[in-house]
């Protein structure tokens, strides 16, 4: 299907789509207000499960990748139930440590290949298969977005108290999102392993997390398509700029992350931002008194204002 692309371009495109899956895995938790930094850990779980099944048990590729994603999802479910009652900073810290426990665990056991990793994973995933998976995931995201489940997830992000008061089981939805996040990260890990044929623990690094995080934060947590398009756009742009050395990459991703957080902390798909950009209508005064605070304080703004 994509034979007209040269092998190098296919490889790059596959890498970008794997990134898109990872960004979606962050999107799904960000959507309900959970700042999870565990994604890279689940990616490693998925990659190692599928690679070990393929190399040691000789499983065919597709079941192996699926099993990897399921194992990552199960781990996410089990540990998600434990850490998801944490709030704010503590949650970020808890998920960060959780992700690292998986990566360090993998690096320190012998049956996982230790720090050396696994070689000889069959390289038989085509770009077409990856495109199909990303599209299928997209369809599921779109259905969820339109359903009351998607609405509940967004409500939890915007105000947990309101969500709970409306009968939304906050803990259950957050666990659901965290499990889905684990599944997607595991899927991405599996695809990546069967793309490159070699994996080692040190590729699931903090730097990779930062890059994915940058993409996810730029995209924002409102539209899943925004996540995919951002991953593709920045991946393609990076190819054209030709940033391969660490300094340029660091400045690009780090700088983007800082600038986006300052200018559009809710990402570029923030509905408010889009509304403001698309129709900038001047609204007449409605009702007796427009509250003076409506312009000055956006939602979720902390009252901390330093003059």
């Amino acid at each position: 299907m994509f034979d007209w692309l040269n092998p190098y371009t296919q490889l790059v495109a596959a890498g970008i789509l794997v990134n898109a899956l990872l960004v979606l895995s962050l999107f799904v938790v960000f959507q309900c207000g959970v700042l999870s930094l565990a994604t890279i850990g689940f990616m490693a779980d998925g990659a190692y499960t599928s690679s070990l099944l393929a190399t040691k048990q000789h499983w065919p590729t597709v079941p192996a990748i699926a099993a990897g994603a399921v194992v990552a999802a199960v781990l996410a479910y089990i540990f998600g139930r434990l850490v998801l009652h944490l709030r704010g900073i503590y949650l970020a810290l808890g998920t960060f440590a959780l992700g690292q426990v998986f990566v360090l665990g993998i690096a320190n056991f012998t049956w996982t290949g230790g720090p050396g990793g696994i070689v000889g994973i069959p390289v038989d995933i085509t770009l077409a298969e990856l495109v199909f998976v990303v599209l299928a995931v997209g369809v599921v995201f779109q259905l969820v977005h339109l359903s009351f489940v998607g609405r509940a997830l967004r409500a939890i992000r915007l105000d947990e108290r309101v969500a709970a008061g409306a009968g939304i089981n906050v803990a259950r939805y957050r666990t659901l999102a965290f499990t889905a996040s684990g599944f997607l990260a595991g899927l991405a890990g599996g695809f990546e392993a069967f793309q490159t044929g070699v994996i080692s623990p040190d590729q699931y690094s903090f730097v990779l997390l930062v890059q994915i995080l940058a993409l996810a934060m730029i995209a924002g947590s409102y539209l899943w398509a925004g996540s995919v398009l951002t991953a593709i756009a920045i991946g393609v742009a990076q190819q054209y700029i030709g940033t391969t050395d660490a300094l340029a990459e660091g400045l690009l991703y780090g700088g983007l992350l800082v600038v986006v957080m300052i200018l559009v902390p809710n990402g570029i798909t923030d509905p408010r931002l889009l509304r403001r950009l698309t129709f900038r209508r001047l609204r007449p005064h409605r009702g007796p008194s427009s509250p003076p605070t409506s312009e000055a304080s956006p939602s979720g703004a902390s009252p901390l204002v330093i003059k």
Partner: peptide
């Protein structure tokens, strides 16, 4: 008045710049 969430992420960005 940015959220806690965004502040943490911004420090991660700064980390990456300084680190590289």
């Amino acid at each position: 008045g940015t959220s806690e969430f965004a502040l943490v992420v911004a420090t991660i960005g700064v980390y990456y710049i300084l680190s590289s």
